[in-house]
């Protein structure tokens, strides 16, 4: 397809989509206190864009993994604040929404190479940890459904492993911290815990150590050198003819051609 044709077709799709949107029922939402009527079915993020907001910050992957679009909302008739990632949550009529894409939380500076696996590393860098009152507002504010308070408890108890495991799915949106009575910085503490857990607590993979050592010692130097001197066509050919590992292969699967092992 030529570039011109491609342009034309994508423009057609856009028009088609716009028509669909314009056919959609409009529902009221309140963005930072102002009412807008937006087509139903949009995410909070798209609803904001529809209303005219342009994101310079507060928007990242649009896929629910980067944590850039933390949003607080309230539904009519419910006193409770709720949270979501703006790119994931679908609007509902008369929702009140506002983004808290960034929170100016305290973030400790440290040289990771100097840190050990001792629980005191966390106590030293984040002493406000001990101001937790176990109110559980952090857990209620987590769009990832993490038991945030349990991870804070684990840190207080000196258990970095448990904290890192509970906080594994944290995407650093910072909504926990925005709601914290004790002004703790849960998400930065969890990042520290994950780093310490990953680098200092989990056992090293023996085979990886062996393999990197072998690479350092030049086990693949010749093969790499050979590949470097191949033409593009030769490389493509090599790639096409490669022997693929079957999806169901077990751990002891080996290719027939062992040249590159």
């Amino acid at each position: 397809m030529s570039a011109k044709k491609k342009d034309k077709s994508s423009a057609e799709t856009m028009v088609k989509k716009e028509r669909e949107v314009s056919k959609a029922k409009l529902i009221p939402v309140h963005i930072m206190g102002k009412r807008y009527d937006v087509p139903e079915g949009l995410t909070l993020m798209k609803a904001m864009e529809y209303a005219g907001y342009k994101f310079i910050r507060g928007c990242g992957c649009r896929g629910g993994t980067c944590g850039a679009c933390g949003t607080v909302y309230r539904k009519p008739g419910d006193y409770r604040l709720q949270v979501a990632l703006a790119c994931q949550k679908t609007i509902e009529p008369d929702m009140h929404i506002t983004q808290i894409p960034f929170f100016p939380a305290n973030r400790a500076h440290y040289e990771f190479a100097d840190l050990t696996s001792a629980p005191e590393e966390v106590f030293k860098l984040y002493p406000e940890l001990f101001r937790c009152v176990a109110c559980n507002a952090c857990t209620k504010a987590c769009p990832q459904g993490i038991e945030v308070m349990d991870a804070v408890s684990a840190l207080k108890q000196g258990n970095i492993t448990v904290a890192a495991q509970i906080g594994f799915e944290c995407i650093q949106c910072g909504l926990c911290t925005s709601r914290c009575f004790g002004e703790l910085v849960q998400y930065h503490m969890f990042q520290l815990a994950r780093r310490i857990y990953g680098a200092r607590i989990t056992p090293r993979a023996e085979h990886l150590i062996e393999m990197t050592k072998a690479i350092d010692e030049g086990r693949f130097d010749n093969t790499l050198e050979k590949l470097r001197h191949m033409s593009e066509e030769e490389l493509k050919e090599l790639y096409r003819k490669r022997e693929e590992e079957p999806v169901t292969a077990g751990e002891d699967w080996r290719p027939k051609d062992k040249t590159y092992l």
């Binding site: 001792a118 005191e120 106590f123 030293k124 002493p127 001990f130 207080k156 108890q157 000196g158």
Partner: peptide, 11 residues
């Protein structure tokens, strides 16, 4: 001191 004090002292 943050590293030496027992947690109950800090809390």
């Amino acid at each position: 001191e943050r590293g030496e004090l027992p947690q109950i002292a800090m809390v």
